[in-house]
């Protein structure tokens, strides 16, 4: 924690493991979408997850967060096994965003983030109807925290906008704020810069560093290689459901198999090194 981006990557103290996924496998009928993938994420680490389209990155996220029940494999969080139930996962401290933005379209930005506070608050139906001082205190705290998070991601001025009316980039940031509202220790970002222009992408980078600096671990899926290699401490590359290579950005960047997986053709391209936007950056 509290490591700043200016420090050398190698000099970072390694924290305790937050997430330990071992042997995660997800099978859809005949399709092996995720095949025996292991991933360990430590405190204060930013881990990148790359791979060509259909490699199983999103499916892997779904397995981690309990949206899918993995065919086999185990996910441990802060040392304890996680049941594949979204609610238990969020409570344990793992939150996520979606590749195709899934905000509550007809709620305001503030309300969206307040929904994220759901699992950290406790007012029940009766308490709400009675509207006692305890309820009002909790409600005010929820509102204040949501406002604070919106300011954190740079949306402090859009709190009353309906999510559906917000610009695309803002919607992505709002999703991050909503995820942060669950007080996670680890946040999973599924293509947070998809569809963004270079300036917005830079802002997203800064935001992710800021999140890491506030003590969280981050796993991020991206197709934008410059973004990934600049951001991450470690990168895992998935190809057709299996882990191809895991290592520092430099190691992954210079691995011929990665380039091959992305470009799909053989030896000729090997020594060129990956270009940032080689892998179809469309989605």
């Amino acid at each position: 924690m509290t490591v700043t981006e200016t420090q050398d990557v190698a000099a970072r103290p390694i924290g305790d493991p937050v997430l330990e996924a071992s042997g995660v496998t997800m099978r859809f009928g005949g399709l092996l979408a995720v095949n025996d993938v292991n991933l360990t994420v430590r405190e204060g680490e930013i881990v990148g997850l790359i791979g060509p389209n259909g490699a199983g990155k999103t499916t892997f996220f779904n397995c981690l967060t309990g949206l899918y029940k993995p065919t086999s494999g185990q996910v441990r969080f802060s040392g304890t096994p996680l049941p594949p139930k979204p609610r238990a996962v969020v409570r344990a401290g793992m939150a996520r965003t979606f590749q195709n933005i899934r905000l509550f379209a007809n709620m305001t930005a503030l309300e969206n983030v307040m929904v994220g506070r759901y699992c950290r608050t406790s007012a029940g139906a009766l308490t709400s109807v009675l509207h006692g001082p305890k309820f009002r205190r909790e409600e005010a705290a929820t509102r204040a925290r949501a406002q604070e998070l919106l300011e954190f991601v740079g949306l402090g001025r859009s709190t009353e906008h309906l999510a559906r009316n917000m610009p695309y980039g803002d919607q992505r940031r709002l999703e991050i704020a909503r995820a942060l509202a669950t007080d996670p220790k680890l946040i999973l970002l599924d293509e947070p810069t998809a569809g963004m222009n270079p300036q917005e992408t830079r802002q997203a980078s800064d935001l992710i560093f800021k999140i890491r600096d506030s003590g969280l671990s981050v796993v991020v899926i991206e197709h934008d290689m410059r973004f990934i290699f600049n951001l991450c401490d470690r990168v895992l590359c998935l190809v057709q459901g299996s882990a191809l290579i895991e290592g520092t950005p430099e190691e992954v960047q210079s691995d011929p198999r990665v380039i091959e997986a992305y470009i799909g053709t053989g030896e000729d391209d090997e020594d060129e090194g990956p270009q940032d936007d080689v892998p179809g950056g469309e989605v």
């Binding site: 609610r87 969020v90 939150a95 996520r96 307040m114 929904v115 506070r117 007012a123 709400s128």
Partner: peptide
């Protein structure tokens, strides 16, 4: 909190679930 949860479910059940 309860009402916001309901509306969230109405809007997008999967996302609501993923938000706890």
């Amino acid at each position: 909190r309860i009402g916001r949860g309901w509306v969230a479910i109405r809007e997008d059940e999967k996302a609501a679930e993923a938000m706890g």
